[in-house]
């Protein structure tokens, strides 16, 4: 298990992504799987960095674990920001004409498509969003 906890600011975006990549790239040989995890991870991390703390500073902790019961990896994001359940976001209509497409909502949609199990909980004023991918 490895974790990284830093201030939830866009300045730390690269640090979070480098951490995620360094933890999984030796483990996962299939390029598409690796890419799916990196994209889903990016979307989840950016959501916290941009939206979790609208009025104050706060931190994001990312915890990465190899699963033991089945080959896979879990990425958990923990923040103390405003309550936000990504699983309750409405899916964008990807068949809508391009002129009518909202520019947002794609990130969560991609997370749902690319990962195998998602869970969210709100405990002790913390958001915990966990993403699991099997490979």
């Amino acid at each position: 298990m490895a974790s990284l906890k830093l201030s939830a600011s866009m300045e730390n975006f690269d640090a979070f992504m480098d951490f995620l990549k360094s933890q999984i790239e030796d483990e996962i040989s299939e390029k598409k799987t690796l890419n799916d995890i990196l994209i889903a991870g990016e979307e989840a991390i950016v959501n916290v960095l941009k939206y979790a703390y609208p009025d104050q500073n706060g931190e994001l902790e990312v915890i990465i674990q190899s699963l033991t019961d089945q080959k896979g990896v879990s990425i958990e994001l923990i923040d103390d920001g405003i309550p936000f359940n990504p699983l309750e976001r409405l899916e964008p209509d990807i068949n809508a004409p391009v002129e009518e497409r909202p520019i947002g909502g794609l990130g969560i949609f991609m997370i749902k498509k690319m990962m195998d199990v998602l869970s969210y909980s709100r405990d002790n004023k913390q958001n915990r969003f966990k993403l699991i991918k099997y490979y």
């Binding site: 890419n35 994209i39 990016e42 979307e43 391009v98 002129e99 520019i103 990130g107």
Partner: peptide, 16 residues
């Protein structure tokens, strides 16, 4: 090699 939703939004932007 890699495109995330932020990159896709730029392409949607080009069209819109």
């Amino acid at each position: 090699e890699y495109i995330s939703s932020a990159g896709l939004r730029v392409i949607i932007f080009a069209k819109q």
